[in-house]
């Protein structure tokens, strides 16, 4: 096989591979999985936080993609299409997985005195919080904080902020109204802010 220059595969190349798959070429399926598996695995690991579940979800996602291949018209980008399929497979997995009891989110939300003033007025975060994300320690800190959110809120935050789906798509996938998605996302972000605050506040230096 001729070696290809590094970088993303040209669109023509992708179309050719899809054609080979449509005609049932086994090697083409293998190449397709190798080409896109990494990205799908990354999504599944972020959403499911279990290697076994992530592998299962990626398998399910590929099978769904293969089934839907005849209908893939190429009107959206292949990577976007696959990403949605993977997200969906992960949601199915989350639904079947033994649920941990949904903890209350209230204790992670800001609290106020009767006069409406915050009981713990916010303090500015250090300038380099985002730059700190280059360090694995900080990345796992953010990941762990996300994982501490109650499951329903965690899912919405991961879909909207980490996977960057829009409100309508998220609502459709979860069978919720857009206003319910917005409300839960806001609470999830507030809760995540509460969990990250001790690590990033300026006076903690």
């Amino acid at each position: 096989m001729a070696s290809r220059a590094s970088g993303p595969a040209p669109e023509q190349d992708e179309a050719l591979l899809l054609d080979r798959m449509r005609s049932g070429d086994e090697a083409a399926f293998a190449e397709f999985v190798r080409r896109h598996g990494g990205r799908l695995l990354a999504v599944a690991r972020r959403m499911l936080r279990s290697e076994e579940d992530a592998n299962d979800a990626v398998q399910d996602a590929f099978l769904s993609a293969f089934r839907a291949l005849p209908e893939f018209a190429g009107d959206s980008r292949l990577s976007t299409w696959l990403h949605r399929i993977a997200v969906n497979a992960c949601l199915m997995k989350l639904r079947t997985r033994r649920r941990k009891p949904e903890g209350p989110i209230d204790e992670l939300l800001p609290t106020f005195h009767e006069d409406g003033h915050a009981t713990n007025p916010a303090v500015a975060w250090r300038e380099d919080a985002e730059a700190m994300l280059g360090r694995e320690r900080t990345r796992s800190l953010v990941r762990e904080a996300i994982d501490r959110l109650p499951e329903g809120h965690r899912t919405i935050l991961v879909l909207r902020d980490v996977e960057e789906l829009d409100t309508e798509e998220t609502a459709k996938l979860l069978g919720l109204s857009t206003s319910a998605v917005k409300t839960r996302l806001h609470r999830a972000r507030q809760a995540l802010r509460t969990l990250l605050d001790p690590h990033f506040r300026e006076d903690d230096r």
Partner: peptide, 17 residues
């Protein structure tokens, strides 16, 4: 300060993905 850290919380989650 709250608004700023709220925005940055979202940015951190995005950057993670």
């Amino acid at each position: 300060a709250y608004l700023e850290s709220y925005r940055r919380t979202t940015r951190l989650a995005r950057a993670l993905g």
